[in-house]
Nucleic acid binder design. Structure first.
Lengths: 245, 245
DNA sequence: CGGCATGTTGAAACGTTTCAACGAGAGTGG
DNA sequence: CCACTCTCGTTGAAACGTTTCAACATGCCG
């Protein structure tokens, strides 16, 4: 469908900062090239650490997309707001993940700090400079975007056909990256119930009830407010896939 | 979140066909470079016309991603199927749009022909070859993927917080590309009700009821089965945004 | 220890789904 | 050309799950 205006590429090319500003980026900004690189040290002036307070807006949908960010600490949520004030969270970003990487001159979503957040940011001109000079970087970015698209389509699938309990189960499982299955694990997410609800497309009450239900059945546990212990991942998986109630 | 396995880039690089097969792609396959290019003529062996019958599977989720396709005629749907047999359509592709452009070696969704479909396809090795040799093409692909991601996030927003009537209204408006507002327009979509329902995350009955409701109120009309006339786009927009019932 | 934000639970209202029946349209063969 | 058939679309009524509104509990921070 690709239902967008259609001139984003040209805008991209005609960005305010021309691609010829060769000394714009030296080593510092190359963080963006690394998938899981370490934080660059030194005093390069092109990247900067920026911190945000809880619930602070990092950028707003429609604003000029001046920077691309990487999360160092905390969590960031990308939201889209409706006319009636309700919001949908389209993605969360955890440490080492990159957000705010846009093609149009304006951001397509709003980014907010979930808790205290520390980021590293790179100006768009610098990102564009690398696009033009480093042949490999675009491939890495394509791979990154491909993953995001895949995740987003998974999200669509979840919202389209899963019940509240299935959504909650799926949600926790997306954080279970490459563990030996059937091992219980703990999630220390800095997210509140409202954040989870807005990601799952549910009300806070329904989310809560689903959590309580899973707790009652000893599939998960919540020792603290923002800690989740998944006791029985395989059962949770069965629930998420609709193979168990 | 980017909840995927995490080794897709390496798989991408290590594709079966090495990038050095220089004469793999001459003019024909460069269709992929053009956003709205014309169909290449001649007898280049690297692209091929392929047609599919109604409801035929073009490729299956998990299969080797051997080709990238462009729609010439008809419509293609990308679906993800649940364990219980229900499906979610994550995207439609109409003429001139490209699908099956993957980073991993395997397709992430299943593609099916909605009606009779004519496509042009390009082998993955060729696509990869261009990635390595044409510096501009990756930028164009990034822009394309960025649009897809944006559309997908819009889809998430729709499924997360909109009612049946809002979803149907939003759906028709996504096809209204750059028209002077308030002008009624006609859509000649080759989609059946089930396809629309599966895209909107609704049942066919609910979709039908929403359509009937909009018809009764003279906001839309359905002269033929797969034709939709939007009589009052601004009213439809108000409904989609929750500003009107 | 208040005071306040956040989380949890209950009961009624609401919208969507389900199951069932019926109608309309397209294609085929008599 | 009509009648037949089959698929697809439409409508109705009950069942179901989520939302809403309300109250209460819990945790956190001054």
């Amino acid at each position: 469908m690709s239902n967008t205006s259609g001139t984003e590429v040209d805008e991209f090319r005609g960005a305010e900062q021309p691609l010829s500003s060769a000394n714009c980026c030296r080593q510092g900004c190359r963080f963006f090239a690394a998938e899981t690189g370490s934080v660059p040290s030194g005093s390069d002036r092109n990247w900067a650490i920026q911190t945000f307070a809880r619930n602070e807006t990092i950028y707003t949908k429609g604003a000029k997309s001046a920077f691309t960010y990487r999360v160092l600490e905390g969590a960031v949520r990308l939201t889209r707001v409706f006319a009636d004030g309700r919001r949908q969270i389209v993605n969360f970003y955890l440490p080492d993940e990159i957000f705010g990487f846009e093609f149009s001159d304006t951001y397509t979503s709003t980014a907010e700090a979930v808790g205290e957040v520390v980021t590293m940011r790179c100006p768009r001109s610098c990102v564009l400079y690398h696009s033009a000079t480093d042949p490999d970087i675009n491939l890495r970015r394509l791979a990154m975007l491909g993953k995001s698209l895949n995740a987003s389509e998974k999200h669509v699938t979840m919202l389209g056909h899963q019940s509240a309990r299935q959504r909650v189960a799926s949600f926790f499982l997306t954080f279970d990256k490459g563990r030996s299955k059937d091992d219980s694990f703990m999630l220390d997410l800095p997210l509140g119930r409202q954040d989870i609800a807005d990601y799952l497309g549910l009300t806070i009450e329904t989310t809560c009830r689903a959590l309580s239900d899973l707790k009652r059945r000893r599939i998960i546990d919540t020792p603290r407010r923002r800690q989740i212990v998944v006791r029985d991942p395989s059962c949770l998986k069965a629930i998420a896939e609709g193979l168990a109630a």
